[in-house]
Nucleic acid binder design. Structure first.
Lengths: 124, 124
DNA sequence: CGCTTATATTACTGAGCAGTCATATATGAA
DNA sequence: TTCATATATGACTGCTCAGTAATATAAGCG
């Protein structure tokens, strides 16, 4: 894994690390749409939405084509949703784990072999 | 998809949207490690690494346990790597698409049915 | 051309965050 | 307790970036 590759992956994750852009992708999930339609679907301001669309386009998440005065945007690679779905699954699993840990003891992380009750461990 | 859910997903993507943290995860891929070992593996400064570890821990990407003066970190859910691998695959596919488009014409995005040569289209 | 609608861009502002230095805390050993 | 090592944290700096308002550009129509 070269630093360049890591940077490329991180940069792409960063595009998805924004609720507004996830909203746009979600709105496009079941078919392309004009900017005007996306404004209605997402509730984003036109200028703001346009910026997000530029970014999604620049990183190849969406494709676009002009149709008269309108510009039509669509998902470039449906695999993005696989990413999102995976992430959702992880969130659920993490919540499940948290729920499973809590009943036993509150965050049982301490000196590995035996827990010393009074010690200020790694937890906060 | 509620705004809350979107925010949760975005927040998690954000944790992965950082080369340094990807580096840490990569270093942990084949087994847990002490902070000192991670300093050596990643080349990050101790303070900086510690901050990233706190973040990975807070979001449930890693687990930790004390071993004497050392603190041992390990991957919490190996599925993270599925995310990373998926992302890498998308990057490769996107590059392939770009390579496939370039020979024909430079970014052939224009008014949908017929391309007008002189028009300043959607491209920049 | 001039008008209207659709989309993009510029300039700005404020918030968040990575990196760094210095320092604090935790643990074990002497 | 004092010292040494390992890890975490406080405070600061500089950069990036989302949101916004105003304006520019593109396309169709009369």
């Amino acid at each position: 894994m070269t630093p360049t590759q890591l940077a490329a992956v991180a940069e792409r994750f960063k595009v998805l690390a924004e609720p507004a852009r996830l909203r746009v992708l979600h709105a496009l999930r079941h078919g392309g749409r004009h900017v005007t339609g996306l404004v209605a679907d997402t509730g984003l301001q036109q200028a703001n939405l346009s910026r997000h669309l530029q970014q999604l386009y620049a990183h190849g998440f969406v494709v676009r084509s002009r149709q008269g005065t309108f510009v039509h945007y669509a998902i470039a690679d449906p695999q993005v949703f696989a990413l999102c779905d995976l992430m959702c699954g992880q969130i659920e699993r993490a919540q499940g784990r948290r729920r499973a840990n809590r009943p036993a003891r509150r965050a049982p992380v301490a000196t590995d072999p035996a827990r010393r009750p009074g010690g200020a461990g790694v937890n906060r």
